[in-house]
Design a protein around this nucleic acid. Structure first.
Lengths: 140, 140
DNA sequence: AGAAATTTGTCCGTATGTATC
DNA sequence: AGATACATACGGACAAATTTC
């Protein structure tokens, strides 16, 4: 099989599945996740893909990895009962200035602006979308 | 060459080198970095290694990557001097969800969203516009 | 409008190095 | 010392977004 990845990339699907297991208690907090090779076997994925999935969870502070030991399901640092699972992803792209933005930046309508978009997810659902616009030649 | 990585791993060395070039102005802020394949040739490294180096810079907000375009040197690593005159104003309003926001918030296109807009001015000129969107029923 | 080239994104398989048990 | 597990690195292939012709 070559590489079919329409829709969500595989590493993100795997990350979501692991997240469910951690939140659902299938993988108790503080315990070790299955080893990378075990996850490779289960999900029929390459190690790089598994590692990337784990990197997503690590980035979300859901797990912590120790060299030579393994990856632990997260024990919440806040002390509290923070059952919240925050996630965020960013992307940057070029967009065309609408009338309002053009007036603000003092450029022509349709001029190129840089947009950075941040999407915050809370327990899976999008809670906030932040779009930051900058002019090309403004050193913010 | 097998894979010796005593001391610093290769991707980190490459990341440091690129960082020097950006901060030193060899790669001007806002301009494109060399393509991944070009960097592969220059550093004699595999693409995955180059991509990992760039990921380090992206994580440090030193660069931003756009699919199909390239990786841009970032404009704003936060220069030191602060003798500038900053202003900001905010406003809140209701807007209608476009296709992308509708998909993100899982609502219908045209549904009402809350938008908060922040306009930063620097010495009079708009340097940044931040638009934050929330759903009405968002438990934010 | 459309095809080709460029560039980044994802995924695979493998090999080797390093840390821990 | 040996086994296990994560870390780094290579090379190849195809997908998707953008630019160029």
């Amino acid at each position: 099989m070559p590489t079919p990845h329409y829709g969500q990339p595989r590493y993100r699907v795997i990350a979501d599945e692991l997240k469910k297991r951690i939140e659902g208690g299938v993988i108790p907090a503080g315990s070790l996740l299955p080893s990378e090779s075990a996850l490779c076997a289960e999900f029929q994925a390459a190690r790089g893909t598994i590692r990337k999935a784990i990197a997503v969870l690590r980035n979300a502070s859901l797990v912590a990895t120790e060299h030579g030991r393994g990856t632990y399901a997260n024990l919440q640092p806040g002390g509290g009962q923070t059952d919240e699972d925050l996630e965020s992803e960013t992307l940057q792209r070029q967009v065309l200035a609408d009338i309002e933005l053009a007036a603000l930046f003092d450029v022509d309508v349709g001029a190129v602006l840089i947009e950075q978009q941040l999407v915050d997810r809370r327990n899976g659902a999008v809670s906030r979308v932040v779009r930051t616009y900058r002019s090309l030649r403004s050193n913010g």
